[in-house]
Each structure stands twice: as structure tokens, then as C-alpha cells.
Amino acid sequence: MKNLEQKIVVVTGAGSGIGRALALQLAAQGAQLALCDVNADNLQKTVDIASAHGVKVYSATVDVSKREAVQTFADNVARALGNASVIINNAGVALSQNVETMNRQDFEWVLNINFWGVVNGCEAFLPQLRQQKDAHIVNISSIFGIIGVPSQSAYNASKFAVKGFTEALRQELNGSNIHVTCVHPGGIKTNIARNARVHNDIMGKAADPKKLAADFDKLAATTAEEAARQIVRAIESNQKRLLIGKDAKALDAIQRLLPNHYDTVLGIGYKLMDKFGKR
């Protein structure tokens, strides 16, 4: 999809982070936007900034984990703007907790948003995408959809699921008008760590949410704006798989080279991070 001008693009989780950055860059290119987020105030800020570019923007407060809510959103997008050409399933949350002590409600919260939110978005908008000459689905996984990490089992499970779902969907749609991209960001400077439910750190110890968020900010190497630029380019070039950030590319390479031992290599890194983090 070489030209996004006047295309109707759906972005979930558009109230902040990568979602907001995507909305603003797409608006600058002249795309018409359908934006949703669970946080109405944050969403409205995105809408106000995007609308300044003179493009049509439809927005709604939506919990993507609710199938009926996403379907209603899709129906309203079609009525307000027309059939969508692109959907970017970006909404996501994080949980940091060990398996043994994990609250099942928290586990389901992560899966319902990160995985079922993606499924709900694809199901609701696929009929609209089918009506377009050229269409695109972007599903946001994570580098944690490629490697497993202690205290991240729920998040890992959701993002591995997004990867598998997306790669299967891409093959099902091969030869059709719909292209599919799976995105694996590394550390991105967003509020996901601040909004996470935090119980344990990567060493399994009780964690201070504020400290964990501060540590994440130090490690996050890529801005939301840069991540959004790469995603837009991936749509324009019909890229199948996108790793964002040097950290994501390095961890992907380690997993490929040492599929049975990457956890040992990463374990050394965890211990060093814990040691120097105390200083």
C-alpha cells in the first residue's frame, strides 16, 4: 500500500504511546482515522491533535477485550467514514508476576486485551477490508512474543499467541487483497510499564512499580514516534515481519542462534542488571 492518503485507517490503543504516534503520523499523511482507546481523556487529546491536520477523525471509547464493543465500533466506523483499508491492532497492557503467585484474574486481563483484542479487531474489520482493492492488517506482538522472560509469562503467552495467530492469518490471506504484518517491538518509550500490574521483578523478587517503570525507561531505546514511522513504512512496503529496535533484533538473533540455551545467556544479563541496579 504505497499511498495512505485518504485511506481509512483504524488504530486501537490510540490514546497514548505508539497508538498516538501512529495516529499523528497517519494524519500528517492525509489518512482518515478511526481511533479507539479505553481512556476517553487520552483518546480525545489524540483526536484534537490529529484533527489539526484537517483530516476526518472518528473516535470511540472501546474496551477491545469486549467482542461486541469492537464489532459495534467497526459498524460505526463504516457508517461514519466508510470501509476501513487498514487496521492496526495496537492496544496492549502488561503484567509482571511469577506463575506460582499469579492471580488468574490478572492473567485473563492480559490475555483478553493483548490477544483477544487482536482477534476481535481482525474479525470485526475483515469484512470491510475485503471490500477494498488493497488492504492491510497490522498486529502488534513484541520481542516477548519471540523469547520467554521470567515474571512475564502472561505477557509472553499473549504476545506469542498474537505471533502465531498473525502468521497463520497471513497465510490464509495469501494471494488476496489483504496484506498482514506482525510487529515485534523491543523497549519502546511509552507508558506501558507505568500502567502495568506489577508484583515481581525479573529476578522473582517483590517489585516496586515505580522503580520497575524507571528501569524500563532507562532500557527503552526507541521512541514511540520512531516505532510508528517504521510501522507506517512496513504498511507501505507490505512487510510481513517487523522487528523494532536494536534490542529486539539482538534478542531475536540470540534466540535463533541458541534456541536451547538463550535463557542461559539472558540469565547472565538479568543478574548483571540486578547487581548494578542496586548501586
Rank of each mutant, 00 (worst) to 15 (best):
M1G: 03
M1C: 03
K2D: 13
K2Y: 09
E5L: 07
K7L: 08
I8Y: 02
V10T: 00
V11R: 02
G13H: 04
A14C: 09
G15H: 08
G19F: 03
R20Y: 02
L22C: 01
Q25L: 08
Q29C: 08
A31Q: 01
Q32E: 14
Q32A: 12
D37W: 09
D37F: 00
L43I: 08
Q44V: 07
K45G: 15
V55F: 11
V55W: 07
Y58G: 02
D63T: 00
D63S: 05
S65E: 00
R67Y: 12
R67G: 09
E68T: 15
A69F: 08
F73W: 12
F73C: 01
A74D: 00
V77I: 06
A78N: 09
R79C: 15
L81R: 02
N83C: 12
N83L: 11
N83R: 12
V86S: 02
I87V: 14
G92L: 02
G92D: 06
G92I: 05
A94K: 05
A94P: 07
A94V: 10
A94H: 03
Q97E: 15
R104Y: 14
Q105P: 09
E108P: 06
L111H: 05
L111V: 15
N114H: 00
N114E: 01
F115C: 12
F115D: 12
W116S: 03
V119Q: 05
N120K: 05
G121E: 08
A124R: 12
L126A: 09
L129P: 11
R130C: 10
Q131K: 15
Q132P: 03
K133P: 11
A135Y: 00
H136F: 04
I140L: 15
S142D: 00
F144K: 11
P150S: 02
S151K: 09
Y155W: 01
N156I: 04
K159T: 06
L169N: 02
N174C: 12
T181W: 04
T181P: 03
T181C: 01
H184R: 10
G186N: 04
G187W: 08
A196H: 03
A196R: 07
D201M: 05
A206T: 15
D208K: 05
K211N: 11
A213L: 07
A213N: 05
D215F: 10
A220K: 01
T222Y: 00
E225N: 04
R229T: 11
I231Q: 07
I231W: 05
V232E: 02
A234I: 04
S237E: 13
Q239N: 10
L242I: 09
K246N: 14
K249I: 12
K249F: 04
K249Y: 06
L251F: 12
D252K: 14
A253Q: 14
I254H: 10
R256F: 07
L258F: 15
N260P: 06
T264K: 14
T264A: 14
V265C: 04
V265E: 03
L266D: 03
G267H: 13
Y270K: 01
Y270R: 12
L272V: 12
D274Q: 02
K275Y: 14
K275N: 10
G277T: 11
K278R: 13
K278Y: 06
